[in-house]
Amino acid sequence: MTPTALTVAGSDPSGGAGIQADLKTFSALGAYGTAVLTALTAQNTHGVTGVHPVPAGFVVQQLETLLDDVAVHATKLGMLGSAEVVRAVAGVLAQRRPGPVVCDPVMVATSGDRLIDDDAVAAVRTDLLPVADLITPNVPEAAALLDAAPAPDVAGLHAQARALLDLGPGAVLLKGGHLGGSESVDVLATAAGTVESRRPRVATTATHGTGCTLSSALAALAARADGPPDWAPLVETARTYLQRALTEGAALRIGSGHGPVHHFAGIWPA
Rank of each mutant, 00 (worst) to 15 (best):
M1T: 13
M1V: 12
P3W: 07
P3I: 10
T4F: 03
T7R: 02
V8R: 00
A9R: 02
A9N: 06
G10I: 07
D12Q: 08
P13Q: 13
P13N: 12
A17R: 01
G18H: 04
K24W: 08
T25N: 12
A28D: 10
Y32W: 14
Y32T: 10
A35S: 15
V36G: 00
A39H: 00
A42D: 12
Q43G: 14
N44D: 15
V51C: 08
P55V: 14
P55R: 14
P55G: 10
G57D: 15
G57E: 14
F58W: 14
V59R: 00
Q61P: 00
L63G: 00
T65C: 09
L66Q: 07
L67W: 02
L67F: 15
A71G: 09
L77M: 11
L80S: 03
L80I: 06
G81E: 03
G81T: 03
S82M: 05
V92I: 08
A94R: 15
A94N: 12
R97V: 10
G99M: 07
G99Y: 05
P100Y: 02
V101K: 00
V102A: 03
C103T: 09
C103K: 00
P105I: 05
V106A: 06
T110M: 04
S111A: 14
D113M: 09
L115H: 02
D119A: 15
V121E: 03
A122T: 10
A122D: 13
R125I: 03
D127K: 02
L128N: 00
L129N: 02
P130D: 12
A132G: 06
L134Q: 01
I135F: 05
E141C: 07
L157T: 10
A159Y: 01
A161D: 06
A161K: 04
L164N: 06
L165S: 03
L165R: 11
L167A: 10
A171Y: 00
L174W: 03
K175N: 11
H178C: 03
H178N: 08
G181W: 13
S184M: 05
V185Y: 09
V187T: 10
L188Q: 01
A189P: 05
A189T: 04
A192E: 15
G193R: 08
V195Q: 13
V195S: 15
E196R: 13
E196F: 05
S197L: 10
R199G: 01
A206Q: 06
H208R: 05
T210V: 12
C212H: 04
T213P: 06
L218D: 01
A220S: 07
A223C: 14
A225L: 12
D226C: 11
D226S: 14
D230L: 11
P233D: 10
P233H: 10
L234P: 04
L234E: 06
L234G: 09
L234T: 11
L234D: 09
E236D: 15
T237L: 14
T237E: 15
L242E: 11
Q243F: 11
R244C: 09
A245D: 08
A245T: 04
A245C: 14
L246Q: 08
A251K: 11
A251M: 05
L252Y: 04
I254H: 13
H258T: 09
V261L: 07
H262Q: 12
H263L: 13
